[in-house]
C-alpha cells in the first residue's frame, strides 16, 4: 500500500491479467464450441493470434473523430471500471500487496453507472461511421441493455437493501463472517443476476447486437484492423470485470488467483452452455425473456430482503 510506484505496477498487473484471462476464456470457448460441434477447432490462443494480426494491419480506415475515439473510449472505460473492482478478497495477502487499486473509493452504484460507459462509446463510434447496420446494432444493444439491466439492478438492490451497504468490500466481508455465499443466502437475487449475465455476455440466444448474418456484426461493422483489435481487448477486459464482480458479490470473492480463475470460469460457462443449445432471439423476444422470470425473481429477492 505504500508508494505510488507499487500502485501503478499493481494497476498494470491487474489490467494485463484481466486482458489475458478474458482473451483466453474466449479462446477456450471457441475450442469447446468446436468440440461440441464435432470439430477440431482452433487453438485456445487463437484470439491472441487474431489480435496480433489485427494490430499488424497496414491500413486502418478513418471514420472521423468519434469513430477514432470509440475504441479508446471502450478500453478506457474498461480499465477505469477494472480499477474499482476488488479482484481478490480484501483479507488476502495478495490483495493488499498487488491489487488494491482504487477499490476503496468506489461502490456498487458507481460501478453500475460506469459499466455502461463501454456501450456508450461503442454507440457513439458506430453513429459516426454512418453504416445503417451499425445504427440498427446500437438500437438493439441499448434495447437489450434495458432488458437485462432490470433483473441485474434488482439483484444488486436486494443485496444493498438487505445488508445496508453499497460497498463491495463490506458485502464480501459479510459473506466471510457468516460463512455462507450470497448465492445460497440470497438465491433468488443470484438467479436473477445469473439470467442477466446471459444478456451481458451476448452469447447465442442474445447475440442480437452483432448478429453476423443479419447485421454484418452490427456496431463494429465499419471498424477493422487496429480499431477492431482495441475493441476486442476492451471487450475481453469487460468480460473479466463482469465475472469478477459476480464472484465478489455472490461467491464470496477469491483469496488467490487460481481460486479466482476457477470461480470465474465456472460462471463464464453458464452463458456459453446456454448459447450452445439456443438459436438467436429477436429483440422483442430477448426483452420479453428478461422482463419475465428473471425480473420476477429479482422482485422476489427484493421482497425477501426487505422483509
Amino acid at each position: 500500500m505504500e508508494g505510488i510506484g507499487l500502485k501503478i505496477l499493481g494497476a498494470l498487473l491487474t489490467t494485463i491479467m484481466a486482458f489475458a484471462v478474458g482473451m483466453t476464456y474466449g479462446g477456450i470457448t471457441r475450442k469447446l464450441t468446436a468440440r461440441v460441434q464435432n470439430r477440431v477447432g482452433p487453438t485456445i490462443w487463437q484470439n491472441f493470434i487474431d489480435l496480433v494480426k489485427l494490430q499488424s494491419k497496414k491500413t486502418n480506415i478513418y471514420h472521423g473523430v468519434m469513430g477514432h475515439f470509440a475504441p479508446m473510449w471502450i478500453i478506457t472505460a474498461a480499465m477505469t471500471v477494472l480499477m474499482f473492482i476488488p479482484v481478490l478478497h480484501p483479507n488476502s495477502t495478495w490483495y493488499s500487496t498487488w491489487f488494491p487499486n482504487l477499490t476503496f473509493h468506489g461502490d456498487l452504484i458507481f460501478l453500475l453507472y460506469m459499466m455502461v460507459f463501454g456501450s456508450l462509446g461503442m454507440a457513439l463510434g458506430a453513429g459516426q461511421t454512418g453504416n445503417p447496420n451499425s445504427a440498427i446494432g446500437v438500437t438493439r444493444g441499448l434495447s437489450q441493455m434495458v432488458g437485462f439491466e432490470i433483473p441485474f439492478v434488482l439483484a444488486l438492490v436486494a443485496l444493498m437493501v438487505q445488508y445496508k451497504t453499497t460497498s463491495i468490500q463490506d458485502i464480501m466481508a459479510i459473506q466471510d463472517q457468516s460463512g455462507v455465499w450470497m448465492m445460497f443466502s440470497n438465491p433468488f437475487s443470484f438467479l436473477a443476476a445469473l439470467f442477466a449475465s446471459l444478456g451481458m455476455f451476448r452469447y447465442s440466444p442474445f447475440d442480437i447486437v452483432g448478429a453476423p448474418a443479419e447485421l454484418a456484426s452490427g456496431p463494429v461493422s465499419e471498424f477493422g484492423g487496429k480499431y477492431l483489435g482495441v475493441m476486442m481487448t476492451g471487450g475481453s477486459i469487460f468480460a473479466f470485470i463482469k465475472l469478477t464482480l459476480y464472484v465478489d458479490l455472490f461467491m464470496g470473492g477469491a483469496y488467490s488467483i487460481p481460486e479466482l480463475l476457477i470461480k470465474t470460469f465456472a460462471l463464464y460457462m453458464v452463458p456459453v452452455f446456454y448459447g450452445w443449445v439456443s438459436p438467436r432471439y429477436r429483440t422483442e423476444q430477448a426483452i420479453r425473456y428478461f422482463w419475465g422470470w428473471p425480473t420476477a425473481l429479482g422482485i422476489l429477492g427484493v421482497i425477501i430482503a426487505v422483509w
Binding site: 477447432g41 482452433p42 487463437q46 453476423p212 448474418a213 454484418a216 456484426s217 461493422s221 465499419e222 477493422g224
Partner: peptide
C-alpha cells in the same frame, strides 16, 4: 477454423 480461418461479416474486418 482449425487453420485459423473464419468468416468475417464485413469487408472492413476481412
Amino acid at each position: 477454423e482449425r487453420l485459423g480461418i473464419r468468416g468475417a461479416a464485413t469487408p472492413r474486418q476481412a
